[in-house]
Simulated assay, not measured.
Amino acid sequence: MPLISSTYKRPAFLANKHLETIYPALFRPDAQLVTQTERLELPDGDFLDLDWYRQGSSKLMIVSHGLEGSSKSTYARWMAKRLIAEGYDVLIWNFRGCSDTPNRLLRFYHSGDSQDLRTMLELAVFPADYQDLILIGFSMGGNITLKYLGEQENILDARLRCAVTFSVPCDLASGAAHLAKWESMVYMNRFMRSLKKKVREKATRYPALDPKPLEGIRTFDAFDEMYTAPLHGFKNAQDYWHVNSSLFYIQQIKLPTILITAQNDPFLTQACYPVEEARKMQDFFLEISKHGGHCGFSQFNNTGFYWSEDRCVEFIQQYL
């Protein structure tokens, strides 16, 4: 019964779930890392931009960012800094269209795009370079990570040791409906501004892509119905959400994997907490803290590292 009691305690001044979520995103300073960037050419003619932090380790930590994030996202870079402090190499990969350069194809990325994770592992992470691989995913990147592990079952890269995920919207349909509510509009509006900007840019290069409907779109429901689903081969938004929700893949995971999430996450519904699945499994661990917000888990000490970063290191060191 891999349900883990959490030790996380939020700082007193972050008195609600929205402050816990927004404070790290807006006020945490940059991690101050020197990046080595690589452009990975893909078989379909597109590319992925990868940020490497190498120091000669045989152990590589692979970080997947969240929706409309990037390798420059504060949470991803601070996680990299924490892992570098332990002596590991780190790779933060950008989903298609999430680096500083728009991707080439009409399609971009989506919330269950595990094929790009698989391709990136096959093409960029060479066996001669690393003996041990760890997957780390935040929010949507966590959903992709869990889906990838559940899809692979017994054909995983033999170097994979474990995976750590945070604040995962395991059920995309209920998550989309929840973020469409009035209380969540501050988050929805931010996502919509960024996603619409990408569609408008793409429409300048692909005349068949009509940007006019964007004016009336306010939620994931409408955006995914009009753009995400058809651009990526799904029948509609409901089909896209169902096929790509990691909730339906978790029970097939055979690699030691933890989902760390907060009970007060403003992005998630009850369906995004796979308690029953965790109770039935040996290798999937679920840790639900009372507080933490969405990808928050702030703490203040002399190191500058957050509780989530320390907890990640604690978990992975059990399997290295």
Rank of each mutant, 00 (worst) to 15 (best):
K290A: 10
F315V: 04
K280V: 07
K280N: 13
D283L: 10
N302W: 13
M281G: 02
I288D: 12
G292H: 09
S289L: 01
V275L: 15
F305Y: 14
C312K: 05
G292A: 03
C272R: 04
C295R: 05
F284S: 03
F284W: 10
L286S: 06
V313G: 09
Y273F: 12
H291M: 12
E314T: 03
R279T: 13
I288M: 15
E276L: 13
W307G: 00
Q318T: 08
G304H: 13
W307H: 08
T269R: 11
Q270H: 06
F300Y: 15
P274Y: 09
Q282C: 07
Y273V: 03
T303E: 05
L286N: 06
Q270N: 05
G292Y: 12
F297L: 02
A271V: 05
V275W: 14
C272V: 06
Q318P: 00
D310Q: 14
W307I: 01
K290P: 02
Q270F: 05
Y306V: 01
L286P: 11
G304W: 08
F315R: 02
Y306S: 01
S289D: 07
E276K: 15
Q282G: 13
V275Q: 10
C312Q: 03
N302G: 08
V275F: 15
N301S: 10
C312R: 07
S298H: 03
S298V: 11
F305E: 11
E309N: 11
E277W: 07
D310I: 04
G304K: 11
W307P: 06
D283K: 14
S308T: 08
N302P: 06
E314V: 04
H291T: 07
W307K: 02
H294C: 00
V275A: 05
G293I: 00
S308R: 05
D310E: 15
Y273M: 05
F305R: 08
A278D: 06
E277S: 14
G304A: 06
Q318D: 08
C312H: 03
R279C: 09
